[in-house]
Every structure is written in structure tokens, then in C-alpha cells.
Amino acid sequence: MNFEFKPTENIVAFKEYLSFLTKTLPGVRIYKKTIYPIVILILFYFSTIVLSKTYDIFHYIIVITIIVILFYYLLFLLIFKIVKNKKNKVLKNNAIYCDLESTFFFTIDDDYLIRENEFSTIKIHLSNIKDIILLNNGLVLSIGSGHNSIFIPTTVLPVSLEEFISLIKEKNPSLMVFEEFARLKKLKKKIYISFVLMIILTFVTSFFIGKYNFKRYDLILTSDLTKQNSTNFTSGDNLHYIYENFTLGFSLALPGKWEGKFGIEEKSDRVNIYYLANGKQSHDTTLLFSVRGLDVFFNTIDFYIIKNEGLYLFVGPTKIGLKRGSKELLEYEELYNDIKNIKLYRNTYNQG
């Protein structure tokens, strides 16, 4: 049995063989096993951090991300197809493997496979062929320990691929045949599935990190306050909550209709009253106003005076982070409009 082939006349098949050799190099395998996981973890980490900061518009981000991924995937396939078609027309010489202009001559005779070209001759008994690796356009015969190999394009075989493999199996019943193209196809499928799972996991993790990662305050809630009737509160709501601060020496009568909508934070020099959306702390927890003494400095860029209550000032934030038109903003504004009617009383036991 005699046949031959020239690499430059079997460009697609030979390129596939060179790619196979490159991917099976020990250094490449180590690189993939060490670098790939690190890169994936880094991408997962930074993607999670970025997305978690925008969880409140997550549904928009998901749609945009899917569109962008599909767009770039289709663009990549188009470019890859164009480049591949161009590359398949030219095969550059590579001295690492062989002189690509030479012709490989094959002879199978007396149970020996002989491969010859002008640079070398390989002669091997068929029983010493360890295994056969099937590529899309050719087959690789592994010799001995597998560090050496012989490549044959399937198009140059004088018999069918099945007959050729059977010929070697007759002399080596333990011959192993591996379908590399099928393995790569499964590997590619696993990569796609892993990529999709990583994206899903990134979105899920980012959403929950974004949702529950917010600043929490040590607040006094309405359940911790005393609710009383009052005729001094001028908003028309006779019920109010009494808050007393013994350190700063004042009390507040807060509207009863604010029930479950605010929390009080005590500081050494001031008291902060926060709006609580849905009655609990969240990203929408926003400062309504602060009560502080006249001698306590505050930044006029971030705060402004709502009203003066003798020795104390009611100070409000110049900026709030609630969405325009949201129900939270409407409720915040409703509470904010009541601040001017809130009564402050100096505690007589703290007056000099």
C-alpha cells in the first residue's frame, strides 16, 4: 500500500494537525489549567462588583447584556469565518515541524509503516502504534510514549478510514481510537454551558449583593417610642410620637401618621431622622432632617437650614438619592412637608 501527500496541497487538514499539536503541548495544558480559572474568577469578581452597584435597574441591564453578547458573538463568528477562509488559502512555512514544501511518502509493507520525506525516514511496526486520534480532516498515529506522531489526511488514504484502522488493529488488537473532533465538540458545548452558567451566577450574585449591601444605621423605631395625643401639633394629626434626648436636652413630637416610616439615629452632637421605605432599612433609607445645636458646624453644600428652634436647628439634606417619580420619593416629600410642623421642646431638667 502506497500513498503520499503534500502539506501545501492539504492546507485545512495540516493546519488542524498543527493546531492539535500546539494544544497538546504540556506547557499549553498547564497554562489552560492555571490561567483560565484565574481569569474567569477575576471576570466574575469585577463583573459582580460593577453590576451590584446598579441592581435597581437590573432588568434593563440583563436585556442590554443579552443583546450585546449576541451581537458580539455573531460579529465574532462572521470575522472568524472570513479570517479562516483567508488563512486556509495560505500555509506559511514553519521550520518547527517540517519543510512544508516537501512531500511525505507512505508505504505499508510486511506489517511496517514507513513515512519518508527528504529530511527523515520513520519506520515502525504496526503493532507499535499506540493509538489513533481522529481529527476532522485527518488522523494522528501516536508512536511509543505518544511524544512522537505521524499525521495522515483522510483524503489521501487509498482505502476507507475504517479499513485503514482495521489493518492496524489486526496487528495490534489493543489499539485505542480516540475521536478528537467529537471530544472538542463536547468540550465546546461544556464551555458554552459554563459560560452561560457563569453569566447567570454573576447576575444572581450581583443582584443579591446589590440588594442587601447598603449602609445600616442603629435606629430607634416607632415601636420604641411612646404614642400620645397632643393638641400642640398643628398638622391636624392629634396623635404623635414622643422622642426624648437626655444628652442634648430636647424632645420631639413627631407626627403619628409617620408610624413605621421613620427611624431615629442618636449621635453625640445631633439627632438624625431617616425615612424608611416600607418600614425597613434599605437602599432607599434617606435622611429627612437633623436636629443639632447652633454651635455644631455643618457643611452648607450638603445641608441647609429648614428652621430655627431657639438653640437648635432643623437641617435638611441638599441631595437625596430617591428615583424621580417613585412612590418612595412621593412618600418622602409627604413626610418632609410635615417637618415645619414638628414641635421641639427643651427639657426643663437639662436647663441651667
Results as ranks from 00 to 15, higher is better:
T154I: 15
K87G: 00
E328A: 05
Y112H: 06
V68W: 03
L329C: 03
S52T: 05
V159Y: 05
F20Y: 15
I64M: 10
L329F: 13
K32I: 05
Y192F: 14
L225H: 07
Y97V: 15
F5E: 14
F262H: 02
T348R: 10
I122L: 01
L225D: 04
I150E: 14
P153E: 15
G310N: 06
L344A: 00
E266Q: 13
F151A: 14
I79F: 13
E170K: 04
L329E: 06
E179M: 00
G279C: 02
S120D: 06
R270F: 04
L221D: 05
L113V: 00
L322C: 12
F303R: 09
S52P: 09
S206G: 03
S102W: 00
D295A: 13
V90A: 06
L344S: 02
T318H: 09
F3D: 13
T107Q: 14
G352Y: 11
E16K: 02
A13P: 10
K189N: 08
I165E: 00
A182H: 02
F105E: 13
E328M: 02
L288E: 11
Y55R: 06
K307Y: 06
L161S: 08
L335E: 07
E259C: 05
F262P: 06
Y192R: 07
E9P: 05
L157A: 03
M198R: 08
G352H: 04
E244D: 07
D218I: 02
I64F: 10
D284E: 12
T231Y: 07
E163L: 06
E259I: 01
Y45K: 08
D338N: 07
K123I: 00
F208T: 09
F297P: 01
E259G: 07
T226K: 11
K307Q: 12
K327L: 08
I305D: 09
F289C: 09
I69Q: 12
E162L: 01
I200D: 04
T103D: 05
T65F: 08
K171H: 05
I306Y: 01
A277D: 07
I42A: 15
I61E: 03
I199Y: 10
S268L: 06
D237L: 02
E170L: 07
K190A: 10
S120V: 00
K87D: 04
S251W: 04
V156C: 14
K53V: 08
F106T: 02
L77M: 13
K211V: 00
Y97G: 11
I320Y: 06
G256M: 13
L197Q: 08
I40T: 11
M176F: 00
G146V: 09
Y304Q: 04
F14P: 01
G27I: 12
I96K: 15
I57K: 11
P7C: 14
N238I: 04
V68P: 01
D131Q: 15
E180N: 11
S52L: 05
L239H: 01
T65M: 05
Y31D: 14
L139Q: 11
L221F: 08
L219W: 03
N245L: 10
K190M: 07
V12K: 15
T348D: 08
I242V: 11
L75G: 10
I133N: 12
F214E: 04
N347E: 12
N272Q: 09
Y60T: 00
V50L: 13
G263L: 08
I66T: 01
K130A: 06
D111W: 00
S19I: 13
L78D: 06
Y312P: 02
K215H: 06
G146T: 09
